[in-house]
Computed example of a mutant assay.
Amino acid sequence: MSPFKGQTGLKRIFNATGYSLDGLTAAFKGEAAFRQLIVLNVVLIPLSFFIDVSKAEHALLVLVCLLALIVELLNSAVEAAIDRISLELHPLSKNAKDMGSAAQFIALGMIAVVWGLILLG
């Protein structure tokens, strides 16, 4: 058991909320891609309320946008962990970073596909 996992109950939830907000702040301050996705979400999510679609389609429009934010947070976390280990160029580090980037590429593709299918379908 990790010594960092000592809190339980409401104290754990309070601490976890703080850590999550710290992570969002760090991503916003330090990751241009995260800020760009925030702008995309600020445009697309409100726009989704003005499109005449079913509730399920509306949910999909919003969820794919939020998924891209989640993927970017995970991608940034992988990059930060790799950089913390070493800034030395290494094939495994490159693979890890490239895979994180590929995940984000797919998430952005999902936005394009889902929005395209719903708007044009």
Rank of each mutant, 00 (worst) to 15 (best):
residue 101 S to Y: 01
residue 90 H to Y: 08
residue 45 I to A: 07
residue 51 I to G: 05
residue 85 I to W: 00
residue 57 E to D: 14
residue 88 E to W: 03
residue 60 L to T: 09
residue 74 L to G: 03
residue 74 L to Q: 03
residue 17 T to K: 04
residue 49 F to Y: 08
residue 1 M to E: 11
residue 115 W to N: 03
residue 59 A to I: 14
residue 28 F to D: 00
residue 79 E to S: 09
residue 94 K to N: 05
residue 32 A to K: 14
residue 63 L to R: 10
residue 28 F to I: 03
residue 83 D to A: 13
residue 116 G to S: 05
residue 87 L to Q: 09
residue 89 L to M: 07
residue 96 A to Y: 08
residue 70 I to D: 03
residue 1 M to N: 09
residue 16 A to K: 10
residue 59 A to W: 14
residue 119 L to S: 11
residue 52 D to S: 14
residue 47 L to Y: 08
residue 89 L to V: 03
residue 118 I to G: 05
residue 27 A to Y: 02
residue 51 I to S: 07
residue 53 V to T: 15
residue 8 T to C: 11
residue 38 I to Q: 07
residue 54 S to D: 11
residue 6 G to A: 10
residue 94 K to V: 15
residue 26 A to G: 04
residue 102 A to C: 03
residue 104 Q to W: 02
residue 69 L to Q: 13
residue 64 V to G: 05
residue 39 V to A: 11
residue 105 F to Y: 04
residue 64 V to R: 05
residue 25 T to N: 06
residue 6 G to E: 12
residue 52 D to V: 12
residue 113 V to N: 00
residue 43 V to W: 14
residue 85 I to H: 02
residue 119 L to M: 13
residue 97 K to L: 03
residue 59 A to R: 15
residue 40 L to H: 08
residue 43 V to G: 06
residue 42 V to H: 07
residue 39 V to L: 12
residue 97 K to Q: 09
residue 57 E to S: 11
residue 44 L to S: 05
residue 114 V to D: 01
residue 15 N to Y: 11
residue 9 G to I: 15
residue 71 V to A: 03
residue 1 M to Q: 14
residue 39 V to R: 12
residue 24 L to H: 04
residue 102 A to P: 01
residue 78 V to M: 11
residue 29 K to C: 09
residue 102 A to G: 01
